[in-house]
Design a protein around this nucleic acid. Sequence first.
DNA 1: TTCCTTATTGCAACTTTTTGCAATAGTATG
DNA 2: CATACTATTGCAAAAAGTTGCAATAAGGAA
Lengths: 138, 138
Amino acid sequence: MSCSEEYTPQLRARGYRMTPQRHAILHVLCHSGIHLSPTQVYQQAVKELPDITETTVYRTLEFLAENGLAYPAHMGSGHLGYQIARNDHHHLVCRNCGKEMEVDHALVKSMYQKLESASGYKLTDSHVTFFGLCSNCK
Amino acid sequence: MSCSEEYTPQLRARGYRMTPQRHAILHVLCHSGIHLSPTQVYQQAVKELPDITETTVYRTLEFLAENGLAYPAHMGSGHLGYQIARNDHHHLVCRNCGKEMEVDHALVKSMYQKLESASGYKLTDSHVTFFGLCSNCK
DNA sequence: TTCCTTATTGCAACTTTTTGCAATAGTATG
DNA sequence: CATACTATTGCAAAAAGTTGCAATAAGGAA
């Protein structure tokens, strides 16, 4: 259940600490497959840990993203949502109805390689949001 | 020079209006190839049109994006920047130094087709930001 | 030109996100 | 167990972005 436990060693290994706040936030992310906005995370987390602040939620989400424990993803509005990091995948979201689906990284991999050789960049983020129209809306 | 003039008919054709505010904002975008944040746009635009407000800048940028006259793009922070819409291209930005380069849509096109047939979605946005490490930083 | 319709703007209040700094609390060491 | 080091948090204030609504003004019609 408490899937956040498994992250403790990952943090410790890098010199970071597992705190009640990080625990609560990881817990929230783990138990919600989908992307959550910082405000949504806060609203969930505050139930477990009444003293947590919005500031901490913002900072922790950014921290988790930097350390690869959470994926940040662009939501329609241009704001960021966060999701626990599991398998490499991307998102397709419908501009019309908002319907979201995951796409395996395998589909995108060859294009990444093409981009890398054309540009000289090394592509690090395998969690991109593409926008379009879903089968119902198009 | 006044490249914003050419957009008047595009707006009119859709029942929208060309106003001094839109004129100023388009002017700012035209004369800056790169992405600008709403605040940057405001700071430029206010020089030409001292009465313009931040509210209007935010709303206008969103309006221009919806109507295809400007491309919104995710900047490193996750915030949106805007750029005048010209050729279809994508962006590669370096997570380390922030260096940005444009990538022609042609490189991405076949992957778009693959995604479309795999998902049933029709991909509408041809202005995606990919993150990685540039040749110097990697 | 004048009038009319309604797209657009500005204002003000509000929500969301960020930042600096002092206080707190994990973790390691003696 | 006590101490020191510093990662992390909370607070308060600032900055950035959003929303509702009344006032304004662009463009078409008379």
